[in-house]
């Protein structure tokens, strides 16, 4: 089913099969290739032309690669437009490694199957069932709904409700953590109202902090609360994953660069991750219909030079855009990260 020979040594699950971790190059860790609001695929005024979508995404991926990009992580999970066969074709056509994700959330984005099942009473799914659903997407392959399984998911992703984690969000977080512990892939969480609280939920399942990336830490509320540093101290990865977005509840690139410099200076350079977080193609969210022509190369063309002006060395940058995400994505048993810097 995939074109790669069995890989030796540490590997990462891509849509074309396991790839040696050393081959990933520059990695953008929290992206969305095709993003579809659940249900929009049925809407009378939403057109999903896969050939057109392929063309648009291939151009953006080639642009990313042309500027030195190696790997894109599609962290939309299993129920927000993920189209595994499209991702495979894109990776083959552009040479960009694509890592796809399992998982879902927050509660509002789930289907009724998980929230009001045909039982009396209709009790929402518990963590163990989510763990099983997500885990099988790693061990048996990602689903093409009602058709087949394809390659293994490279990470488990979930999100908490912005106003605060709901009971079902907590089941999703615990289930995601459990799936990660049993399969060796990492967990990506996007926090709701409290980054540290939400991180503690997945750690409580026995997942080492070094197997977790916390997204959205360049939100203004996260910045104001000091959560990027708190998350790094706890040993998890800090994703500043809206690079290029200013306003709309996010800090500016200047503030973002200052934050990276601060994390590096305080000894947390091995915990920082960067990403753009702008969907390549978005369906069902009118405000995001117009996506930029070159979303993902901005990281390398504009933001990395900005980091250099803040005093980051080439080694620092290499660590942030290559080594850190590679270590995060590498599949396998991982020892707990021992960092607890005062």
């Amino acid at each position: 089913m995939n074109g790669n020979p069995p890989a030796e040594g540490p590997t990462v699950n891509t849509v074309l099969g396991p790839v040696p971790a050393s081959e990933l190059g520059v990695i953008s860790v929290h992206e969305a290739l095709l993003s579809v609001v659940p249900g929009a695929e049925h809407a009378f005024d939403v057109t999903i032309d896969r050939a057109e979508i392929f063309e648009a995404l291939a151009a953006k991926l080639r642009d990313f690669r042309g500027h030195g990009g190696g790997t894109i992580v599609d962290s939309t999970g299993m129920f927000h437009g993920r189209d595994v066969r499209l991702l495979e074709a894109l990776s083959r056509a552009t040479g960009v490694h694509i890592v796809a994700s399992t998982g879902m959330g927050p509660e509002e984005l789930l289907g009724g199957y998980f929230l009001t099942p045909q039982t009396n009473p209709p009790t929402p799914w518990p963590a163990e069932k989510f763990a099983d659903l997500f885990g099988k997407e790693v061990t048996e392959g990602m689903v093409v709904p009602r058709v087949e399984r394809r390659g293994a998911a490279g990470l488990v992703t979930t999100t908490a409700t912005r106003e605060g984690m709901t009971a079902t969000d907590e089941s999703l977080f615990r289930g995601a953590a459990h799936a990660a512990v049993s399969t060796g892939v990492p967990v990506s969480i996007r926090f709701g109202a409290d980054a540290v609280h939400d991180l503690e939920i997945v750690l409580d399942e026995g997942l080492p902090a070094g197997r977790v990336v916390v997204g959205g830490l360049d939100r203004t509320d996260a910045y104001a609360a000091g959560w990027p540093l708190a998350v790094a101290r706890r040993g998890a990865y800090v994703a500043l994953d809206h690079v290029g977005t200013e306003g709309d509840g996010h800090v500016s690139d200047a503030e973002r660069a200052a934050l990276v410099a601060e994390l590096v200076e305080s000894g947390h350079g091995d915990r920082v991750l960067l990403s753009i977080g702008t969907p390549g193609v978005s369906k069902g969210e009118p405000t995001r219909d117009l996506t930029p022509e070159q979303p993902w190369s901005h990281l390398l063309t504009t933001f990395v030079p900005l980091l250099k002006t803040r005093g980051l060395s080439d080694e620092d940058v290499q660590r942030i855009v290559v080594d850190n995400p590679r270590d995060l994505l590498t599949v396998g048993p991982h020892a707990a990260h021992e960092q607890e810097v005062a």
Partner: peptide, 12 residues
């Protein structure tokens, strides 16, 4: 089938 059930191979 409830929406989302298509993700669960037990029913396929």
């Amino acid at each position: 089938g409830m929406p989302g059930s298509e993700l669960d191979t037990r029913w396929w």
